[in-house]
Structures are given as structure tokens and as C-alpha cells.
Amino acid sequence: MQSTRSRIVHAALGWTVALVMFFPIFWMLLTGFKTEMDAIATPPTLFFAPTLENYAEVHQRADYLRFAGNSVVISFAGTALAIALAVPAAYAMAFFPTKRTRSTLLWMLSTKMLPPVGVLVPIYLLARDSGLLDTRTGLVIIYTLINLPIAVWMLYTFFKEVPHEILEAGRMDGAGPRQELVHLLLPLAVPGIASTALLLLILCWNEAFWSLNLTAANAAPLTAFIASFSSPEGLFWAKLSAASTMAIAPILVLGWFSQRQLVRGLTFGAVK
């Protein structure tokens, strides 16, 4: 049992760290409800008359909903497509391992190591020539491909934990691999598939290399919308903060729910 004194020291340290780390997000949240005058006031104001003006203005003037819509459509479509491709692959490797399974898994992982800048030029030119530049379809394809290895790995580790006996029983009853997957494994693996999808959703939503380089007016998601605030003319801190709060709130909540899965997914099962 720890002594009371060490508990107090741990609590003080832990909470100090937590508040310091969270402060920029907290300050952003607060600034979003200030007027532009209050936002750049110095010394900074902690108490002020809150306003919803920034939120209204970002909605009206900046066409926020179109960017948000792009983010939602691209993230969900990219996630769904990656899961649809990954489930059968993970199923085959988890339940019917062959001599090549191990090397296939590692090879899939290694495709994730290719730095995006290394292939920026060809992908940009391919997208331009096929008419996919600045389209949602283009980004969906890219997101599916960059997340597919993570999806296969995560699902593989989840499927490995499903007791083989249940599937064996179905096989005895004459179920083929397809029926076995659809009727026996999928109902059992719903939690694993859901947490994989959650992680992919977070990764798609926050992706800021391809979304900034391959989109312009049409398909730009929220990452690009926020980047448009970086222009040096004028300081619009309150509007920047309101827009940022709206952009990160849904994914922050999802992220908090998926801490554990995040570790498993991002370390490819190396740390559980």
C-alpha cells in the first residue's frame, strides 16, 4: 500500500502534467467563444462575455459544412473500403496459415514504411492524368491504401483470439470458408472490427499530407480548411479557434474511447 504522502505527490505531479499538456486545447476552446478583440487581448482574458458569433460566422462565410462534409464522406468511405478488403485477408491468414503467411504480413507492414514524400510526384501526376486530382474519390483510394496494412494487422490479431473450436464445429457441419466467415466469425468479431474501424476513422480524419497536396477547392477536407487560416493577413484567432474546435471535437471523443486499440493498432501488435 502506498503512503498518503506519496499519493498526494503523485496526484499533484500527474495533474500538473495533465493541465499543461491540455492547456493549448483548453485555451482554443475558450478563445472560440470570445470576440476577436477579447481573443488578442493582453493580458489574456480568462473571464469574458461568451459569444457564439464565431461559430455562426464560420458556418456562414467560410462554407464550413462543405469541408466538414468532405471529411465525413472521405473518412467513412476510406475506412469502410479498407475494412472490406482487410477482413477476408485477415481471416484467411488467421485461420488458414500457410508457410507464406508470416512473410505476407511483414511485407504488408513494410508497404506502410514507404515515406509519402517519396511518391508524391508520381501520385500527383497519376491523379492529375486520371482526373482524380481534387476529388473525394482520389483521397478515398489513397486513404484505403495507406490504412490497409494497419487494418489487416489489427484484424489479424483480433481474429487470432477467436477460439478456433467454434469455427471447427461449423466446418464439421459442412460450412465452406465463405459461410464460415460470414455466419460464424463476423458476429463474434464485431468488437474487434469496430475498434479497427474507429482507429482508421481517426487516422483518415487527421491525415494532413495527401489532403493538403491533392485537393483544392472541391474535395478539401477540414485539415485543408484549417490550413487556409495560416494566411498572414489579419489575425482571426477567435474564428480559427471556433473552426478548430469543431474540426477536432468529434475525433477527440472517439480517440478517448479507443486508447487501448490505438496501442495495438499503431504498434502492429508488438505492444499489447
Partner: peptide
């Protein structure tokens, strides 16, 4: 403490 990881890079 872990919140910053879920904030998009541009924000």
C-alpha cells in the same frame, strides 16, 4: 494528457 495526439496537425 493523451488528447493532443488526436488533434489534426494543421490545428
Amino acid at each position: 494528457v493523451i488528447a493532443p495526439f488526436f488533434v489534426m496537425p494543421t490545428v
